[in-house]
Amino acid sequence: MSDSKIARPDKFRILIIGRANAGKTTILRAVCGAEGEPDVYDQNGNKIITSPKTTRSAIRTTLRTIRARLSREKPHPTGGKDSILSPSPLRGEHNIEYPLMFRGSPGFVFHDSRGFESGAVEELELAQKFIQNKANLGSMRNQLHAIWYCFSADSNRFMTAADKVFFDTIDTGTVPVIAIFTKFDALDAAAFSALSDQGVPFAEAQRRAPDHAREQFDQNLLPLIKQLAHPPRAVVCLRNMHNKGSQGAIKKAASELIESTGAALDDSALKVLLVQAQCVNVELCMKAAVNSGVITKAAQGAIQADPATFNPLQEKLIREIFQWFPYIWVYNKVTFCIICQLNIT
């Protein structure tokens, strides 16, 4: 099987938008199965060497650690380390055009927008220009494929006036916007209190709080989101992603985000590209392959065909299945035929 027939996947490009503490770095690490910071590149593909923390920043980190020890509290969850996606000396001059990539997940390319503050139009205009420029590119290689717009659920206001301006004035065209509400578990306390006020026993209120929080969100906030001029294609609520001890919850949240993004895509080739880009959850590859219908279609064709033509159909089936698994390729048709013969005999 030659590379000309099944090409290796290109990169899936995502613009992630959100203010500080919206959980953007946590999301990217979870989706890419990575730790640490992504590499930053300029528009020519040259890697940018991020500057180390300044002496003042290092002193602040040391003081935070000392105060935490004296008060017998845990240090800052990031250990005082600034993220590239947060305003800091490590990040350097912010540029939405600069791609971010994790070494262990080369299938994704990210661009970062710092979010929009009320009255500040510069960042909004930069994001709008970036989206329009990427949409006008002829090659799918450099086009923008999806936008992840992050909101922090532990904020007093889910959506600011500046956020509303984005959804009311910027038409992203075929590029789907996925609204991501991070730290959704922060709403559990209010949901628990509401259930307790209704006379629900303590243990049951604790158990039902997460579902009740989502029900209240769907009832009170989701209708407002759908009324926006250009509402997001999908809404994803992520919880417990800040707890490194809950790897199962983190993986589940990342999988939900990938699935919701895939469902929002109109182009079937981009759906394949997205699933290929993520390499931390093989179940998503299997599910996407099954949901695509290629297995059923090829199997039905094999049943209805003449037995003499079964092997070519079997080859087609394997070709179409393996396109969802970018790390499993059969390059040599002779080898493929030998495998088929061994299976038959």
Rank of each mutant, 00 (worst) to 15 (best):
K252T: 15
M1W: 10
L124R: 06
T78G: 13
E283D: 14
L70E: 02
D154W: 15
I147D: 00
V40P: 08
P52Q: 10
P52H: 06
R67Q: 05
W148V: 07
G262Y: 07
I27K: 00
R29H: 03
L313H: 13
R64H: 13
I59A: 10
A153H: 04
K134S: 08
V282M: 09
R13N: 15
L124H: 11
A153R: 05
D39T: 02
Q43Y: 05
V121F: 11
Q216R: 13
Q132T: 15
W329G: 02
G115A: 03
V236P: 01
K5P: 02
V280M: 11
L270K: 13
N46E: 14
D163C: 01
V165I: 09
E259F: 09
A68G: 07
D3Q: 15
F102D: 07
F167N: 04
S83V: 01
N95H: 12
G45F: 02
D211I: 01
E93C: 03
N46C: 11
T78Q: 11
I6Q: 09
C32L: 08
C237H: 04
V177A: 00
E117A: 14
S86D: 07
I250Q: 14
R60K: 08
I96F: 00
K134V: 10
T296G: 12
H94G: 07
E37N: 11
K74A: 10
A22N: 15
F336D: 04
G92W: 10
L228Y: 06
I178N: 00
D163P: 01
F310E: 03
R207L: 06
R67D: 10
D171Q: 01
Y41S: 02
K129W: 07
A213V: 10
R141E: 13
R214P: 02
F158G: 11
